[in-house]
Computed example of a mutant assay.
Amino acid sequence: MPPNDDPLVSTDWLAAHLDDPKLKVIDASYKMPGVLPLPSEDYLKAHIPGAVFFNVNTIADPDDPRPHMYPGAEQFARDVSALGISSDDTVVAYDSGGWVAAPRAWWMFLSFGHPDVKVLDGGLRKWVSEARPTESGQVSPKPGKFQAKLDPSFVRSKHQLLKNLETNREQLVDARPRPRFEGTVAEPWSGRRSGHIPGSRNVPYADLFDPNTGTMKSLEELRRAFNGGGVDLEKPIVTTCGSGVSALVLTLALYRLGARGTALYDGSWAEWGLPDGPPVATGPA
């Protein structure tokens, strides 16, 4: 049985609630650097009616050279308020499916103290395939009143992970495709070494979705994927990936399976894989 606070909602559910003034829909689509058209351009072309664009790259710390690192609570509150979202709203995040990024927005809302947030199962792709309405152009919402306070237990730093190399208290689960994890291909993040954090497991995020519909697989299949990757669902887990986006797909799946208290390594491989970074392992987990 899934927990009753299942973070996923269906397209049917969203369609039935779209006119609710306390429901705010965000398009959190993301693409790797250099991939065009930009997600913001895709959004202007077609989005779910009333949806605003949640930019993963700018709702981030502007002073940090690493890609889209967590912003401070004050900035998150300001950016989210500007999107017309208030603290008493229900937020539904979706993405266009090219790169599954809505879970990143979901986790950010949770970690900044907003539990009333969901992810649209199947995203825009499923919505469009069902011939549901979309609109184009910019949405200019009336500013909301959002308050944010970061719960630091939701994220981990490089320093904490270095310590974990000694204690092995937390299992590290990497969401990148297997060739990147094993270090047999070059990293798409420029200037990064190949491989993975020593001792980590690998559950590629794409394995958790039905490739035909873009919806998340059944609880039984999710459990099988984590078990197959050597992950113990009863023990503490930190998820990681290339830059802290696709790791949250694992986090979302773990949450659906009832795992609580997991954390995200925000810097992920974009930080760990730097030339002067900590030790790297290659080969299978």
Rank of each mutant, 00 (worst) to 15 (best):
P211S: 03
S243R: 10
D232V: 06
H17G: 05
L18P: 05
G123T: 09
K163N: 13
T213Q: 08
G214L: 12
N55W: 01
A93N: 07
H47S: 10
L38G: 01
G228P: 10
T262R: 07
G191V: 05
V35R: 13
G98Y: 08
K142Y: 02
D27L: 11
P33M: 07
L172S: 04
N212T: 12
D61F: 03
A82I: 04
S136L: 13
P204W: 05
M108E: 13
G214H: 11
K217L: 14
A253M: 01
G50V: 04
V52F: 06
R193L: 02
S218H: 00
E221H: 01
N227K: 14
G230L: 02
G228V: 09
P2I: 09
P141K: 04
G98S: 12
G144Q: 06
S96R: 07
L222Q: 01
R223S: 15
V245I: 15
F76W: 11
N212H: 14
E182L: 07
L124V: 07
W127D: 07
Y43I: 10
V9D: 00
A77W: 03
G97L: 04
C241M: 10
S140Q: 13
N168H: 15
V231P: 00
S218M: 09
E234A: 15
S243Q: 12
S96Q: 13
V80W: 10
S157V: 10
S190T: 15
Y265Q: 02
A60L: 02
A247D: 05
K235D: 07
G191W: 03
K163C: 07
P133A: 09
L110G: 14
P188Q: 08
I26A: 00
L44C: 09
A46C: 05
I26E: 04
